[in-house]
């Protein structure tokens, strides 16, 4: 796929309209690791409408342990939003095999709406990371989708690093557990309280165990969010029976409204951009490269002021160029 540079503006304009062919092409470009494609991908990102990326749409992460019913919850949410005429995009991330690098991406299978709603776009991705973290491409892909879709969902299995990674890429993170599985106990023990903005207990159709799990989580959440402005809600629902979905949608909207009222939405997205730029630098030049630029913390402080994605990418490029020039003597 050879997209002329001059076409990137046209492509960006089509993304704004959620043109399916354009979206697919842009995601392929972001995924392409060849140097020429990477340069073009950065240009495409810079060509996206900055105002929209900073303030519009809703980036939502859905994570939680395997078997919690995330995909069926997602299908239910998709049906709900699509029925309201909203445009919904999903990035469904499945783990890669550490041994072979291969991956089975089975989430479309579990999302009954796949290929049926005209305002729905689903891209499955392999995590491609040894420790279960998310591929660096997820963040720029979410920007491509945010350019044209009202709601962008990132679904990951909450194992290893991925649940922390996803929380650093989205506005709102919902953490899904199922009752009677030890999920809620594990969650409480794991101490990853910073991950969720909303807790979801799925499979309320199981009855008493669901109520117990919700109560356990409620108590822990109340304690851990004492004094903060956002009280993490615990939504009990049944994706299977389509019960309790309204409450979750309300909670998601309430969290976004909370971010806006605290002026955290735009700030959060700026921080996500900065975090991605630092991660890119780390992946390409290692921790030592980042240290030579003054260290991750110092870069983050500078990048935090650059709300505009185009400007951020320019400063990222400048840094990368600097490191490339200074390391030329040592072929990698």
């Amino acid at each position: 796929m050879q997209t002329a540079v001059s076409d990137l503006q046209a492509l960006a304009a089509k993304l704004r309209l959620a043109d399916r062919q354009a979206v697919a092409e842009a995601l392929n470009l972001i995924d392409d690791q060849r140097p020429a494609a990477r340069a073009k991908a950065l240009e495409l990102l810079a060509a996206l409408e900055a105002e929209r990326l900073a303030n519009d749409g809703h980036l939502i992460g859905i994570t939680g342990p395997p078997g919690a019913g995330k995909s069926s919850l997602l299908s239910t949410l998709i049906d709900y939003w699509c029925a309201k005429g909203l445009k919904v995009a999903v990035l469904a991330v499945d783990p890669s095999s550490p041994k072979t690098g291969g991956a089975l991406l089975g989430d479309r299978l579990r999302m009954t709406g796949a290929g049926q709603h005209k305002n729905l776009f689903i891209r499955s991705l392999a995590s491609r990371q040894q420790l279960g973290g998310l591929a660096a491409e997820v963040w720029p892909m979410s920007r491509i989708l945010l350019a044209g879709y009202d709601i962008v969902l990132i679904e990951t299995v909450g194992v290893g690093q991925s649940e922390v990674d996803v929380a650093s890429m989205v506005d709102t993170t919902a953490y899904v557990v199922q009752p009677a599985s030890g999920d809620s106990i594990q969650f409480i023990k794991s101490g990853i309280m910073e991950v969720p903005d909303i807790m979801v207990v799925n499979k309320a159709d199981l009855g008493a165990p669901a109520i117990k799990a919700a109560n356990d989580l409620h108590q822990v959440m109340r304690r851990s969010t004492q004094g903060s402005d956002w009280k993490i809600p615990v939504c009990t629902l049944s994706a299977r029976d389509r019960q309790g979905i309204d409450a979750l949608v309300n909670a998601l909207e309430a969290h976004r409204a909370h971010l806006v009222s605290m002026q955290l939405l735009t700030a959060g997205r700026t921080a996500q951009q900065g975090a991605w730029a630092i991660r890119q630098l780390q992946e390409e030049f290692g921790n030592s490269g980042v240290a030579r630029l003054g260290g991750a913390a110092a870069i983050a402080r500078e990048l935090d002021n650059q709300h505009d994605l185009g400007e951020l990418l320019a400063s990222y490029n400048a840094r990368a160029e600097h490191l490339r020039a200074s390391t030329k003597a040592w072929p990698t």
Binding site: Q21, N28, G102, G106, L109, A114, G115, Q116, R123
Partner: peptide, 24 residues
């Protein structure tokens, strides 16, 4: 080592075509 999108059974040709496009 391939990345495999498996969609399971009982799909319409339209769904398969949409998946091929969306999944790249």
């Amino acid at each position: 080592g391939m990345e495999v999108v498996y969609e399971g059974i009982r799909l319409t040709p339209q769904q398969i075509v949409a998946a091929a496009q969306e999944e790249g």
